[in-house]
């Protein structure tokens, strides 16, 4: 039986009726049309469905939409502002950290949760922070560089919220 949930997605409030077996990933993609959240394995192994749930980056394929009742979710679509791309998005573009792009949404959101708490991470900290987000194209080299670069922007006060 469907239940009513209240969920805040990218600063927008929603009241939605959901089946208990609907995952948060499917809610975002199929009900809200936010297809920037990708599904690469649906088992919590690849990280392409990463969203930020109440400040923590999580695999949205492992969460029931109904569990997110009362929560705040940020997806890749919620990063841009009127000023343009988020510093991380900008850094990913400029550094060439994106190839096929399928992991990019999750990778950027994991990078963001890191930088939000630590805008000056070391290389190893960056690698560990994105270690749940698999990428098969880049060897992670330019992704690590992009996160570090964006961190410098954070420190200059251009990033963060």
């Amino acid at each position: 039986m469907k239940r009513i949930i209240h969920i805040r997605v990218n600063e927008q409030e929603y009241e939605l009726a959901v089946e208990p077996n609907l995952t948060l990933a499917d809610l975002l993609r199929d009900e809200l049309g936010l297809t920037g959240t990708k599904k690469g394995c649906e088992m919590g192994d690849c990280g392409s469905c990463t969203v930020i749930l109440d400040g923590r980056n999580v695999n949205s394929c492992l969460i029931l939409a109904i569990q997110a009742n009362g929560s705040s979710v940020q997806t890749i679509e919620g990063l841009e502002t009127e000023a343009g791309l988020h510093p991380l998005q900008q850094a990913f573009v400029e550094k060439g950290a994106i190839q096929c792009g399928f992991c990019s949404s999750g990778m950027i959101l994991s990078g963001k949760t890191l930088l939000d708490s630590n805008p000056n991470p070391g290389e190893q900290e960056i690698r560990e922070a994105i270690s749940g987000n698999l990428c098969r194209c880049t060897g992670y080299q330019k992704i690590v560089e992009a996160v570090a670069d964006a961190g410098s922007d954070y420190q200059k006060g251009q990033g963060g919220e």
Binding site: R29, L34, T35, G36, T37, K38, K39, T75, I76, E77, L79, E80, L85, Q89, Q90, F92, V93, E94, G96, I98, G101, F102, S104, S105, I108
Partner: peptide
Amino acid sequence: SRLSRLDTPDKATGRALFIDD
């Protein structure tokens, strides 16, 4: 040169459409 790729702004923002989209 090192020009930024044409497709990556769309991929960085979730706009890029893949098959399941």
